[in-house]
Design a protein around this nucleic acid. Structure first.
Lengths: 155, 155
DNA sequence: AGGTTAAATGAGAACGATTATCATTAGCAT
DNA sequence: ATGCTAATGATAATCGTTCTCATTTAACCT
């Protein structure tokens, strides 16, 4: 999966504070991973994406650590984990704006959307079934028609 | 995961025809698996669920075959595969009635629903993003409040 | 700054779900 | 019945992810 990571002067102090607030020690792997999540132009990154970004920065961080840190970030509310169709989880920085996702089941492309009518009905349906709504609540699966989707010629 | 399979006089001839129509030889594993999917009181079965049902019927069918057959059934349009949160895929007989799903992210419980307003908005959103809608399009994740959900006491 | 301690890391083993390999078996058209 | 091809079963391999445990490090206290 191609992606681009553009290093930027990291707000090391800010990020350190952000980690402390979350109750996490400001270790090098955690600072780097937070920095990558904040500066990547990919909104949804898999553990492997993050790992590769670390390699590209010349950081020697183990795969296990990447998973651990991402899981901790999730527990701390810094990121949201999505298990979209396709086997591997992707992580997204929690930015406070609720939105839902549409995922291409063929190429994995993800887009975000917000629709107030769906939000309202969604809440009604969930309540009527005896469920409590989840923050990352709704996923629509479809086939994208992007020119570079490898499976475009379907249905 | 508890489940119950109640054997019923299988419509062997019907099922055989059904397979032939799908372009699949009417082999014993395929007939049995189709029978299980049609007669289980679980609408969404994992490969393991199906495998266990076969064992309970006294059939010696390998795990690999279960996966292969389910994948073929999916390709043939006989079943729909869902990759809900939680790691393992579940399969549902294609019954022709479109519906969406709400999944408890804690215990994995699945319910089906249909809401015309959501259907309409969904179509509009998907089209506006340049996607083509998928049959099994929409999943809402939440926390169920069922008494037997092992994680019920969650904010 | 230096020492202490509990927490975090890294390497690799382990894991669970799924897929691939390949020799053997079984549908099904003749 | 026979033969051809596809399907099966046992098992190894793979993939994403988590666990284990010996080593390192951040944070706190002088």
């Amino acid at each position: 999966m191609a992606w681009l990571y553009r290093p930027r002067r990291g707000d090391a102090a800010l990020e350190s504070t952000e980690l402390k607030k979350a109750g996490l020690k400001a270790t090098l792997p955690r600072l780097k991973i937070l920095d990558i999540l904040e500066n990547s132009n990919q909104r949804h990154m898999s553990a492997e994406d993050v790992y590769k970004a670390l390699l590209d920065l010349g950081e020697e961080v183990g795969f296990a650590t990447v998973y651990r840190v991402l899981t901790q970030f999730e527990a701390a509310g810094l990121v949201i984990r999505h298990n979209f169709e396709g086997g591997h989880a992707v992580f997204e920085l929690e930015r406070g704006h609720h939105h839902d996702h549409i995922v291409c089941v063929q190429c994995g492309r993800v887009e975000e959307f917000y629709d107030q009518i769906i939000e309202d009905r969604q809440r009604a349906v969930v309540a009527s079934k005896g469920y409590e709504i989840n923050d990352h609540a709704l996923v629509i699966y479809g086939n994208c028609t992007k020119i570079d989707c490898p499976y475009r010629s379907r249905g």
